[in-house]
Amino acid sequence: MPTTPPPDDVATSDASLALSAWGDRIFKGLLVASALAAPALLVALLWQLLSGAAPAIGAFGFSFITDSIWDPVAEKFGALPLVFGTLLTSFLALLLAVPLSLGVAIYLTEFAPERIRQPIAMVIELLAAIPSVVYGLWGIFVMIPILQSSVYPFLEANFGWLPIFQGPIYGPSVLSASLILTIMVMPFIMSVAREVLLAVPAGQREAATALGATRWEAVTTAIVPYAKSGIVGAIILGLGRALGETMAVTMLIGNRHDIAASLFAPGYSMAAVIANEFAEAGLGTLHASALTYVALILFAVTVLVNAAARLMIWRMNRGAGK
């Protein structure tokens, strides 16, 4: 295909017009076929998960998420500890990551010297590029030893009256998994929140300052309220990431089908159980079907969460975020 075609190459005659009309038709056909790929994949994905999970759905129904016995040998499967583990680790991760990432996002858009804004944002976004399995590796061999020797004993000594900081200290635990998740979702929330804050019209800022607000007051009274729904969207997007995060959590959560009050105790998550057991569950077994059921639940939850996030960000971009 020549990049600078000679003038006679341009469609002027009837024949070449007809030819270009054909070209357009073929072109459009190819594009439509490619554009259909994504929806087709989604339908296939949903169908495969549903049909794969069907035996388990038939056997356990909704009690699947309220039972807590997981016994592949006796073919009894209940996912409550998994659902609990996923929700708890994601919640704890957000609890820590949200203030942190909003602090950074507000600082970078409102206060930081112009020169350092881009570099800091880039360094934090690079955190998002690190593969999950590397976080897991680092968590096992660097983070856990540090936590186990200093942070966890400190928590137990000073906050031991809280049931969540009682009991024997395990290295791989719900708390360890939550902390690695915090580091992993932070860049996502930060970068979306930053984009949202950058989209706040300068007029908001100027109006607040003109009324005598300090820069911080402008942030709390004019900027954050305007961006509220976008920020909530960013947080929900982070939640979606945390819920589906697999490798690092699998490597750090301890992988025990149990619900414990203590955060120092090992737990399990939906993604982790799939990662650990799927390869061993034989083709066509109820075990594989139960794991597919877990995947289906995980998929449904993340779709809902992401749809909610998109909706919030979209509302904010339309200027209706109040």
């Binding site: 994905l45 979606g240 589906g244 799939i274 799927f278 995947a295 998929f299 993340t302 779709v303 992401n306």
Partner: peptide, 15 residues
């Protein structure tokens, strides 16, 4: 749909 797929956990895609 692309946004939905982008947010789908990779382990689910593995399944």
């Amino acid at each position: 749909v692309a946004d939905v797929l982008n947010g789908t956990p990779s382990i689910v895609v593995g399944v």
